[in-house]
């Protein structure tokens, strides 16, 4: 059964144009789902629809059997759907790391002893145990964002939504955050929905949704999506770097098989080609 599903959801900030138009999608437990789209495609609005920060004008958002339209259930939904936003600076509420991670559990009314355990769990999940008593202002962007993720993990959510959470980070910070997310998905079985416009973050996903103009334009595995090169480019998106390299090589007469998305795969194919020649 799907843990999160959207049924014919439409939403608009003003009356003239819809940010999200008739979107239906479903996410299974333990899945790693990527949602991509260019700026202004409505993908960030989706993140807010997932946990009831905005409510659908039409259709419904169902999380684990709870609907965001039901005011009494919003709390239950936010417990299950943790959202990490773009700017780490604007998500941290406290001046000390452990106080910030404690913020969520405190809101749930959890007992002190258990909050302590949750802080330990959340900080070790993102590899930031050493910084428990530090001030976030002295950390790097990637480290701050990992604290923000820990703050969400302390709520023990079943679904982790990342709304462009790597967009403001440098390549090193982006790598740190991605590794943490992959680990959480694989080892802790957390369902991950990542909303991004970095194509390289998409290649490991189980399922990819392409959003264009508020609608789902494409849906499929990364392979299926990136095989439709012209369509992707038509939506103002780029191909993953390795797919781009493959295409450029092909134009120079070095033909590699289609569907190369990762560095490893590219290296393998290049080696195979070298052995052949």
């Amino acid at each position: 059964m799907a843990i999160l599903s959207l049924e014919n959801v439409s939403f608009s900030y003003d009356k003239h144009s819809n940010a999200v138009k008739d979107v239906s999608l479903s996410v299974e437990k333990g899945e790693y789902v990527a949602i991509i789209g260019h700026n202004g495609s409505g993908k960030s609005t989706l993140a807010k629809l997932f946990n009831g920060l905005v409510l659908p004008d039409k259709g419904s958002v169902i999380v684990d059997g709870f609907s965001t339209l039901n005011k009494k259930e919003v709390f239950e939904i936010r417990k299950r759907v943790g959202v990490v936003f773009q700017n780490p600076d604007n998500q941290l509420v406290a001046s000390i790391v452990e106080d910030d991670v404690a913020f969520g559990p405190e809101n749930l009314g959890i007992k002190r002893e258990e909050i302590g355990q949750r802080i330990e769990f959340a900080l070790s999940a993102v590899g930031m145990e050493k910084f428990r008593h530090s001030s976030p202002t002295r950390l790097s962007g990637g480290q701050k964002q990992r604290i923000a993720i820990a703050g969400v993990l302390a709520l023990k959510p079943q679904i982790l939504v990342l709304d462009e959470s790597t967009a403001m980070l440098d390549p090193q910070g982006r790598k740190e955050v991605l590794e943490v997310i992959k680990k959480l998905n694989q080892d802790n079985g957390v369902t991950v929905i990542t909303i991004t416009h970095y194509m390289d973050e998409v290649v490991d996903a189980d399922k990819v949704y392409v959003i264009n103009d508020g609608k789902i334009a494409l849906c499929g595995t990364p392979q299926e999506i990136f095989n439709q090169k012209e369509v992707i480019k038509g939506f103002g998106l780029e191909l993953p770097l390795c797919a781009e390299i493959r295409d450029k090589l092909a134009r120079q007469g070095v033909i590699l098989p289609d569907g190369i998305l990762t560095k490893e795969r590219l290296a393998e194919e290049l080696c195979a080609l070298k052995r052949k020649s």
Binding site: N51, L53, V83, F85, D99, G104, E106, N107, G109, L155
Partner: peptide, 18 residues
Amino acid sequence: DAMDARCYSGSKNRTKYK
């Protein structure tokens, strides 16, 4: 938004860690 997303709902039923 981030506070809402982390279940903040005022002082009701809230515990304190420190």
